[in-house]
Design a protein around this nucleic acid. Structure first.
Lengths: 120, 120
DNA sequence: GGGTGTGTTATATATTTTATATAACACTTT
DNA sequence: AAAGTGTTATATAAAATATATAACACACCC
């Protein structure tokens, strides 16, 4: 799996990487129990600092997507945490507010959701 | 309409305000053509700096939700901008990746979407 | 016409966040 | 033993965020 940092983006590097890893897990590019690349290896591959990769891994751990031990960062999704779900719904409200105002009707949104779920 | 800043949140003040204003527009608390509170008034009301409110307004302008003239910031949603839609879809992919991993199934997501659309 | 209220711009300062660099530590695996 | 893990510590630099004070150009109203 190749991750890529957009150095011109205004999104923080660690956040870009975190999101790409979440997408990789959702699309089964990484399976439960698999070990992510080491912070040193990945930082070299994508051209950012080791500590920035480490921050991405730490956030992924805090958000319940991986567990980290001496072997490395292992995919381990912590499901059914009420707090996670609440946060997701809050973010959904905002993005759908934007979507409605930008002319995305309910039916189109459902179609988008289905298309995305089909990839996961 | 009352906006409120969570001073303990790790989300930037201008971003909190920006999102609350978008929600207010989506829920018809502010209608097309209405003037938002002045930057000075609103900054006093919610307890943050004038320039921070101004930044929220500027971002809302850049994202096509208001137009700003000498009268103030007027609600004026710029619909059907392809770039806006593309960005929304990108963000949807990430949030739905998180949702699926956290156990939110397709049917539940559709239900959530409907519930949110019902409020708009 | 003068006062008030707009957004806007400029300058300055302080804090926090982000990113990088180097080094070392404790532990595991080979 | 050697190499590879995450982790911690320290340091530095740049960018983002937030605040403060002041002024400007314009619109509106009494």
């Amino acid at each position: 799996m190749i991750f890529e940092i957009d150095f011109n983006s205004d999104e923080a590097f660690y956040m870009q990487l975190k999101n790409q890893i979440i997408l990789a897990i959702a699309t089964r590019s990484y399976l439960e129990g698999e070990v992510l690349p080491s912070v040193r290896k990945l930082s070299e591959d994508i051209g950012i600092n080791m500590h920035t990769v480490n921050k991405a891994y730490t956030v992924l751990k805090d958000e319940g997507f991986v567990k980290v031990d001496r072997r490395g960062a292992v995919v381990a999704v912590d499901i059914n945490k009420a707090e996670d779900k609440r946060l997701i719904i809050e973010e959904l409200k905002i993005i759908i507010a934007r979507a409605t105002l930008k002319g995305i009707k309910r039916e189109e949104m459902h179609a988008l959701i289905d298309a995305i779920y089909d990839e996961y």
